[in-house]
């Protein structure tokens, strides 16, 4: 409780600094006040366009994230099993980790339409994060538990859940938590470059073109909130899965 009060006070402090700074600057194009941002957000929320933009971006970013989770996990399993696959993918994963999002996006625009750009970018961002974490989990599997399972003749499904999944889930949880936030950041950045119709990225771009700074801040706030919401929901689902596995 005390921690929450302190956090709230810190947030309030920075909001005050922002408000006073904007008032002192008195240039709405450069910096709007938080009150103006909230007002603009209140105007945006009732419109259908607002929700359709969120749905459009969220759908694509989350699709890329889900595909990245599946591909990253699958590849990690293959690399954990076959060292040749690990060696084959090592340079690719290393490159994927270090390429800037902007380069990805411009390159991806050549391959796919701007409509599906955020799916591809989220996917490419998600894969190396999940792959690296899951592979670390696989490398840290306790081989003595395998012997234990053999001695007790634990059936395959129970062995998979109890022995392997229980050891891998903490890695999956941290990988997915990190990846979902990164997917939102990079997905929206890709949309700003590709400007697909009806996306949050397009809204941000338009706000920049027409110097509507309040819109820019309002949409940024929306991105943060939606990203945190997605992360919260997904983390809760994984937590539920962890609890079920823990209790078997």
């Amino acid at each position: 409780m005390k921690k929450r009060v302190i956090t709230a006070l810190c947030v309030l402090f920075w909001l005050t600094v922002w408000q006073l700074g904007a008032m002192a600057l008195n240039q709405k194009i450069l910096l709007v006040t938080p009150v103006a941002v909230v007002k603009r957000l209140a105007e945006l929320v009732p419109s259908i366009d607002f929700w359709s933009s969120i749905a459009c971006s969220a759908g694509k970013i989350l699709l890329g994230f889900a595909m990245g989770l599946a591909a990253g996990t699958g590849l990690a399993l293959l690399s954990g099993k076959f060292s040749a696959v690990r060696q084959l993918f090592a340079p690719l994963v290393s490159v994927l980790k270090s390429i800037p999002v902007a380069s990805f996006t411009i390159l991806a625009l050549i391959w796919v339409s701007s409509k599906n750009l955020s799916v591809l970018v989220s996917f490419l961002i998600c894969v190396p994060i999940v792959y690296t974490n899951m592979l670390e989990g696989l490398d840290n599997l306790d081989p003595k538990l395998k012997t234990m399972a053999e001695i007790f003749h634990i059936p395959p499904w129970r062995r998979f859940v109890g022995v392997y999944l229980s050891q891998l889930l903490p890695y999956f949880r941290s990988a997915s938590g990190l990846a979902i936030g990164m997917c939102w950041k990079s997905g929206v950045a890709a949309e700003v470059i590709g400007i697909p119709d009806g996306s949050i990225g397009e809204r941000l771009y338009m706000a920049k073109i027409y110097l509507e700074t309040a819109d820019l801040f309002a949409w940024t706030l929306v991105i943060i909130l939606v990203s945190r919401l997605c992360e919260g929901i997904f983390t809760a689902l994984v937590k539920l899965m962890v609890k079920r596995v823990e209790r078997m």
Partner: peptide
């Protein structure tokens, strides 16, 4: 059919105590 207490415990650390038992006993 054999059973064992190993030199190390070889329990699944992330599972509950009863889940560790059910892992073996079904």
């Amino acid at each position: 059919r054999i059973s064992a207490v190993f030199q190390e415990n070889r329990l699944c650390e992330n599972l509950t105590v009863s889940a560790n038992i059910r892992l073996v006993t079904g």
